[in-house]
Simulated scan of single mutants.
Amino acid sequence: MIKLVPQKVSIIVPVYNVENYLAKCLDSLVNQTLQNIEVLVINDGSNDNSEAIIQQYAEKYPEKIKPFSKENGGLSDARNFGLERATGDFIGFVDSDDYVTETMFEEMLNLAEKHQSKMVICNIQKVDQHGNVTQKLTQIPNMPENINLENNFSVFSDLSYFACNKLFKKELFDQKRFKKGVHFEDIQLIPQLLLECENIAQTQKFHYQYLERTDSITKTHTEKGLDILKAVEDVEAVFKKSQYAQKKAELKNFQIFEGVYSFLAYLAFVKSDDVFYDMANKLELFMKDRDIKIKDILKYSRFDKNYLLSLPLKKKIFYLLFFAGQKKLIRKLM
């Protein structure tokens, strides 16, 4: 009789100056109903009290918490550092100011095993600092637990590519890492991992609790937004060599959703006029190079619903003015 070794999950938690949130995050991980886990907590050069909190948890839960400390290198670098040291069969990522339900990794590992999936997805809810739910983000509505990608490849263009609400088979990272020194590293990498999958599994439970912080420095929107377009380019290069290379309609929809809509959602908050116009021009080039027409954008449906029509009025007006070439009017209104 062969004794099956239970599969292990490695959870990678990059930490940078989160002393007020870290305990809640780590509590949610050491209390997972899944016993066979390791939590790699990577202090990415914090200069607050985060290191002391990490050490407390490492002493209290030595069999689960694996502490590491490194020079500051950014989110991608810290995640990659964790990937190099993870010993699990599956990998999860949790941001250190967020937290998760205690059954998250048990349920997601069960789904991975049940459906032989290399990627499992759960829903996200945004919470405020008192734990009140402010928004529920359903990831894949109206689809079965096990999704065959060949037959449902619209998922490729419609999915939100967060790293943190997913469980990944470790082998997906054999040749791949998060790109360092860029913003939007998830949009750059996670679609590439999806292209390696034949199927994905999902749960409709809202396991991942994404904290909307009131104290975080308001992110200034700059030309860093151009990293979205670069991320899409990197995915395109991998797509062309992938098992799904012939699915050109879905690639175009990905270009529209991430390259046009996500980019414009970022561009709306760019303060500098010069940067705004420069980025707007680069988007127009991006569209021209890919033969993306205004009618393609207006027709784009996400999860079988027209995307533009599903948006709040203010966003609708912004997008429509942009597509009508009214950039100066947009700047005036803003």
Rank of each mutant, 00 (worst) to 15 (best):
M1D: 06
K3C: 05
K8S: 13
I11R: 14
I11M: 11
K24Y: 03
L29P: 08
Q32L: 14
I37E: 08
E38F: 02
E38Y: 03
L40D: 09
V41R: 10
A52W: 08
Q55A: 13
E71C: 05
N72Q: 04
N80G: 05
E84I: 07
A86D: 02
G88E: 10
D89F: 08
G92H: 04
Y99N: 07
E113Y: 01
Q116N: 12
Q116R: 02
L137Q: 12
P141T: 04
E145T: 14
N146E: 13
L149H: 02
N151S: 10
S154Y: 10
S160A: 09
A163C: 11
N165P: 01
L172Y: 04
K176I: 00
R177A: 07
K179C: 04
G181D: 11
Q188M: 10
I190L: 11
Q192V: 08
L193E: 11
L194I: 15
L194M: 15
L195Q: 09
L195C: 11
E196W: 04
E198K: 15
H207V: 08
I228V: 14
A237L: 13
V238E: 15
A249Q: 11
V270G: 01
K271T: 03
F276R: 00
M287R: 05
K305S: 10
Y307N: 07
L309M: 08
S310Y: 03
K328N: 09
K328G: 12
